[in-house]
Design a protein around this nucleic acid. Structure first.
Lengths: 204, 204, 204, 204
DNA sequence: CTGTAAGCGAGACGGTACGTCGCGTCTTGAC
DNA sequence: GTCAAGACGCGACGTACCGTCTCGCTTACAG
């Protein structure tokens, strides 16, 4: 009942020799994207991806040994839709702009669902946790880190504050993602101001 | 292989009439606690809980229809170990104190693992998401909300800042929990200062 | 879905002291009858009987320790509807008449279903097999045995043929019951003639 | 307690591509045979078959969607041990010979137990009943039908008597099987004579 | 030009877990 | 002691995924 059999595309894909078939790769990613979007983390299975992609499970496991790998690949593949790092001269404005478009990215694609899946997966297996911390996070927070560095270089914040502010920003964004509350952007301005702002012991 | 047979306690538990048997309840919770601690979210199964508790699966499902319910029960059962809301007169100090002991609570019990499980589960099923948002979060963030209210009442922060600061605090704590980075408490003081502090547009 | 909750009869039955409550007994049998009729051998459960009868399971197990007992009780309770032993002076006619009304009895009540259940149960447990052979069969074939004895006393058949002919008759009737072919009575006359008839080594 | 752990054969069976593995098939049938023999209809579970065969339940359900299918497969697999259709020129002698060896077949193998299981199963589910009537019976009574046809062709019996005599024969054999009375073969001769014999209205 | 190595769809395999149902036993509290 | 009620331990049900495997095929490239 849950398994829509999906009228397989008549086109028969096959090997193109001793190297990756990009058509197969694309079909797998497309199916994975569609599936995570449609059914979420539960209900996402390699079997079903294979079924929808008309691919062998071996093919999938060859490239993506774990679900974490697959989720990262989905996220990265969507990356094309996502855009530029603002540079308005104001950290708050930069953060608001960036976060707004990031959340839109998370909402409008399967990217958000993929990240939710990646985080969920990381709660269970150490490989996924490692992938999240070592492969996903550094790369995917580089933009914000860049914005914070720029702000530091114009003395808007202290250099020693960068890591903390970054964590706060990631934590907040994840919290909204994980509780499925990305739709309400109204608090964004004040929250980003808070993140960009002064620690209480420096205020006075 | 995965099923450590566990020499069953010779004592045979049974029904005590048409109402809950608290012994069974305790055995189930203890087994669940032990299991989530030992094996994490993956590797946590109702089957194995039942096996270790010497309980029927029906008994478990009767009280905890979903894993989310079970995780919340574990968290709540541990709650005895966790303590008081500091009231030092300084929001930062309060937050640091509270967060320190919360993280210790998360680390030293199965509570942290249970919360990680709950969050992971919420990424897949809407029931778990609802449980997290509507049953877990309001109750479990009441303490910090209280601390923020107190701070507002002595004009340390604005009342309108409470919700935002609360989200920042939750987000940050979850982020550290979910990436398994609770051990490093060194940034706590500066982060809590940041949360307690002034938004950038109010600083001047 | 399969378990129609059945709006319990508002009337609340209870104990009438240290002896059987005939109302409860009747309710249990009625529910059992209804259930075996409706759902057959699979789908017949003590739990469901208790539910429909508004009875405690203990009550049922007190009187009917096994399903076999329950099936026999159903069969016996229906017995009121069933009638007389024909005595036409011709064995064939007697057998046809009797078998016709027996089959009608089996078809129109839950008796047929109960017997099918009893036989099925006897394939699995030795208690049920014993009940079938020692309690059910002798009693329930007494009528036909009587008819055969009468025929022997008027020299229509030999006394030594009684047991064999009885087995043939039971076997044939069971076969039709067990393959759910009771509706077709057309071969009855010729079959009963065959049973009543002469062994091939005596014919000539 | 019920689960005799059975020191698994060190040899690890696995897939041999996308088609049936005959080793697995053999292991499943052997385990099923052993189990029905040992424990009878009650106590026969797909779980236990899988356990003993060292097979996944999926593997079993793939080939034998219902227990009826499995019972038929057991019966058929044993068929190798069972033999020839007698042709002595006398229907009675043929029937006695055939029935004797059939009963021996039923007694000495798991075939008898399997048939008892099949019949029991047919009392509960319509699929099993259909399998019994449409797949099992026609095929498995072909031998006797053949013998009756031969007898008819030499005018020993009438052609119109074939079906009735066949039913009588099946009914009687089943009756003895279902009441676990196959050990006593003494009435066989006179019963088969009765079946082969003349209906009472043709006897003069 | 031919062999070989890898990719590919397919799907069977041994497992584990799911959530539900039925078993027969038990305890309670009312009668 | 009988009754309704229903919790209890147990174990089977049939399904879904897991990650591994083997097959039969295709194609590219190395010798």
């Amino acid at each position: 009942m849950t398994t829509k059999p999906k009228p397989l595309p008549a086109k028969k894909r096959t090997s193109i020799g001793s190297r990756r078939n990009p058509e197969a790769e694309a079909a797998v990613l497309a199916a994975a994207r569609e599936l995570i979007n449609e059914r979420g983390y539960a209900g996402f299975s390699v079997d079903e991806v294979a079924r929808r992609a008309g691919a062998g499970k071996t093919t999938i496991y060859r490239w993506y040994p774990t679900k974490a790998d697959l989720f990262i690949a989905i996220y990265t593949a969507e990356r094309t839709t996502f855009v530029a790092i603002p540079d308005t001269g104001s950290l708050v404005e930069d953060l608001v702009g960036y976060t707004t478009s990031l959340w839109r990215f998370w909402r409008s694609n399967s990217a958000g669902a993929a990240l939710r899946g990646l985080i969920a997966e990381a709660q269970g297996t150490k490989e996924a946790l490692a992938a999240l911390r070592e492969r996903f996070l550094p790369e995917r927070t580089a933009d914000v880190r860049q914005m914070l560095s720029t702000a530091a270089s114009r003395d808007e914040i202290g250099v020693e504050e960068i890591n903390g502010k970054l964590s706060l920003w990631v934590g907040y964004s994840w919290f909204r993602l994980l509780t499925d509350e990305l739709h309400d952007e109204s608090p964004l301005v004040s929250i980003m101001a808070q993140i960009a702002g002064t620690p209480s012991d420096r205020a006075s």
